[in-house]
Amino acid sequence: MNAPRKLRIATVSLAGCFGCHMSLLDIDEQVFALLERVEFDRSPLTDIKHCGPCDIGLVEGGVCNSENVHVLREFRAECKTLVALGACAVNGGLPAQRNHIDVGRCLSAVFQSRPGMDTAEVPDDPELPLPLDKVHPIHEVVRVDYFLPGCPPSGEAIWQFLSDLLAGRTPRVASPLLHFD
């Protein structure tokens, strides 16, 4: 009897705070159970820079700049199942609170008119990704298979969600684990 193939998981934080990743680590000793079933591809946990072919992609955070778009598209292209993890990926969350402000005014307020800045110029280094005029939830940029809301979703919710996914069950996180705050 061959052991079942380990599933490959990639994770990333776009316009997020890494809170969802912290919550993922909050599954505590279940990490061992998880590692028996999966191996990690691109992730802040592995420091792999580009995502290879994966079974599951977990995306934390919304889409706030051009780099987010490229990374998200790489995830969509490589991951069979793509999951929006947490409030920001699902709805834009806290970073999207800038959406009612003109991004030009934001840049100007931060780089041109803030006291104590050395130079009053908006950085133009091509290395820096440009911000989009609005922060978008990830499903407005790529097709998304599953959504797990919460700010962050609890470790327990993430574990239940992943257990379902790994076992081939359609994930179903119900109240009280399911919440939007």
Partner: peptide, 28 residues
């Protein structure tokens, strides 16, 4: 497979304006 409802490259216009950039990385 999927296309956004909004204009992705257009969403960078304001930032291009503010930075004066027009390199390949400043477009989507």
């Amino acid at each position: 497979d999927f296309s956004p409802a909004f204009d992705l490259d257009g969403a960078l216009r304001r930032a291009r304006q503010m930075t004066g950039r027009d390199d390949a990385g400043a477009h989507l």
